Amino acid sequence: MTTDTSWVGAAMTQTVHWVRTVGITFGETTAQRAVAHLPDAPDLHNHVGGPHAAMIFGLGETASGAVGLAAFGAVMERATPLVVRSDIAYSRLARGPLTAVAELDRPAGEVLAELDAGTRPEFTVSVTITDAEGRETTRMTVVWTLRPNR
């Protein structure tokens, strides 16, 4: 399996139309961690002048997908990643551009071993979202599965 994950941000931008529409960009992307950025744009604001909750959720889910793609992109011909469930907690009013940092909660090798054993593995990605000053505004977890292709 390759360790070069430099293609992940471009692939997400090209294939996930919503990512391109709202202007999400990607920083570091590895098989353990991904960083995604949401610009501050009035079209994305809510009634109090910050990013709408849907934009914040979308940023976090997108970052979680990026780390999943980086970790499991090599097995896409035999399994499809799907979100199983997510949980989000908004702890502070978000304003301005936001950054999401998503981290895989267990080794990718464990997940792949379950897939190789014929099961449908689940893996959790933890996401922290901060504002431009580095203050945490949101935490979320996204549970994904690798559904074997038929």
Rank of each mutant, 00 (worst) to 15 (best):
H52E: 04
A34T: 07
M140G: 15
T15L: 13
V101I: 02
Y90I: 02
A89F: 01
R92P: 00
A70R: 09
L59M: 07
T80V: 15
T29D: 12
T99C: 07
E61S: 03
V16W: 11
R92A: 00
W7G: 08
T141I: 02
A34S: 15
P81G: 08
H47T: 15
L146H: 13
G49Y: 09
A36F: 11
V142A: 08
E110H: 01
T15F: 14
W18F: 13
L59D: 04
A34R: 13
A102F: 01
T137K: 00
A31I: 07
E122S: 09
L69H: 08
A100M: 08
G58H: 02
A74R: 14
D40T: 03
G68I: 05
G73C: 08
L98G: 02
E77P: 11
W144L: 10
T138S: 10
V127T: 10
F72I: 07
P121T: 13
P97E: 04
P81D: 10
V75N: 06
P51S: 09
V35D: 14
E103T: 10
D40E: 06
A41S: 08
T2K: 15
V83C: 08
A31L: 09
F72V: 04
L69G: 08
V84I: 04
A79Q: 07
H52K: 05
P42H: 09
E110S: 12
T13I: 00
P42E: 05
P39N: 15
T13V: 06
A94E: 01
G27H: 09
L59N: 03
E114H: 14
F26R: 04
R95Q: 01
R78Y: 06
T137L: 00
G118T: 04
A94K: 01
M140I: 01
T119R: 11
V83W: 07
N46D: 13
L146E: 03
T130K: 00
W18L: 15
A102K: 04
T21E: 07
S6L: 04
V101W: 01
E114M: 14
V111K: 02
M12Q: 11
S126Q: 14
P39M: 13
A41Q: 09
R135D: 00
V111M: 02
A100H: 09
L38F: 11
T138P: 03
T141G: 05
V143R: 07
T124P: 12
T145W: 05
E136Q: 15
T15G: 08
S91L: 03
R150K: 14
A36N: 12
R95D: 03
L146A: 03
P107L: 14
Q14G: 05
T62P: 02
A94G: 04
F72A: 05
A11T: 06
P121Y: 12
V143G: 10
G50Y: 00
F123S: 00
R135K: 07
A74C: 06
G58V: 01
A31G: 14
V35I: 13
V35G: 02
